[in-house]
């Protein structure tokens, strides 16, 4: 962590977070803190426990052990307060298929307590950030994958939350849209703590100030992208990722 960020408030505190499904341990004692201004790339192979960790952080899954706090609010004991300051994009960006984009975003804004002019402005702002202007009155089910993802993203940005947790925000987007989303994340980075999970390692290089690699539910690396690259002679994140996450034969 650069020294300038040391004074930023810690917005996400995860301590010993563990999730077991029967005898299978999906997430095993994951701990990390994230301060404002940090963009954390959450990496790992499929099934490593990325989504499970994010779901526990969002208060959707109940951890078997450990705690998670967002802006000081425990996600289990003070869930509503924690979720109020969190923008969460669930895996696959689920939305209600029969609702129009406007209706869906208005619903989310209402639940978040906005009314009247403020509500309209919030929705307009989120629509502008995610470039949804052209599809506002279309039912979500008629939209392309890229637009659906952006609707999910708009929902997470509505209330301009200090903490963003985005599960694969660029999955299904074309290269131009990916670039836009990365630019957007870059613009917001300074005043938020952002966690994104991704399979695209170049993304980590492009937007993240820090990367955590998780394999079989455990954190195997926690460093800046540059540091990680230095851990393999080739200097490529791909190689570092493979080295850390492929089980020795």
């Amino acid at each position: 962590m650069p020294a300038s960020m040391a004074e930023q408030p810690v917005l996400i505190e995860i301590n010993g977070l563990t999730k077991r499904f029967g005898s299978f341990t999906a997430v095993n004692h994951v701990s990390f803190n994230l301060a404002r201004g940090e963009v954390l790339g959450f990496l790992g192979p499929n099934g490593a426990g990325k989504s499970t960790t994010m779901r526990m952080l969002a208060g959707f899954m109940i951890p078997t052990a450990g705690t998670a706090r967002i802006c000081g609010h425990d996600v289990q004991t003070d869930g509503v307060a924690a979720r109020r300051v969190l923008g969460f994009l669930p895996e696959g960006a689920p939305t209600y298929p029969e609702m129009t984009v406007t209706a869906f975003l208005t619903f989310c804004a209402k639940v978040r307590g906005f009314t009247g002019r403020d509500l309209v402005q919030r929705v307009e702002r989120a629509v502008g950030l995610t470039r949804l202007d052209s599809v506002l009155l279309q039912p979500v089910e008629t939209l392309s994958k890229g637009f659906k993802r952006r609707v999910g993203l708009a929902q997470a940005l509505l209330h301009d939350p200090p903490v963003l947790v985005l599960d694969e925000p660029t999955d299904g987007l074309d290269p131009n849209q990916k670039h836009e989303v990365r630019t957007l994340i870059g613009q917001m980075a300074a005043e938020k703590a952002i966690v994104i999970s991704t399979h695209i390692l170049e993304e980590v290089d492009a937007v993240c100030t820090r990367a955590i690699i998780i394999a079989s539910g455990q954190v195997v690396a926690d460093a800046t992208p540059a540091e990680l690259q230095g851990r393999h002679p080739s200097g490529k994140l791909d190689d570092v990722f493979r080295q850390l996450t492929v089980e020795p034969a």
Partner: peptide
């Protein structure tokens, strides 16, 4: 089935 339960229950509602 749609996964929207994850969205609904991560909104600030009980």
């Amino acid at each position: 089935r749609l996964g929207t339960i994850e969205l609904l229950l991560t909104l600030p509602i009980t």
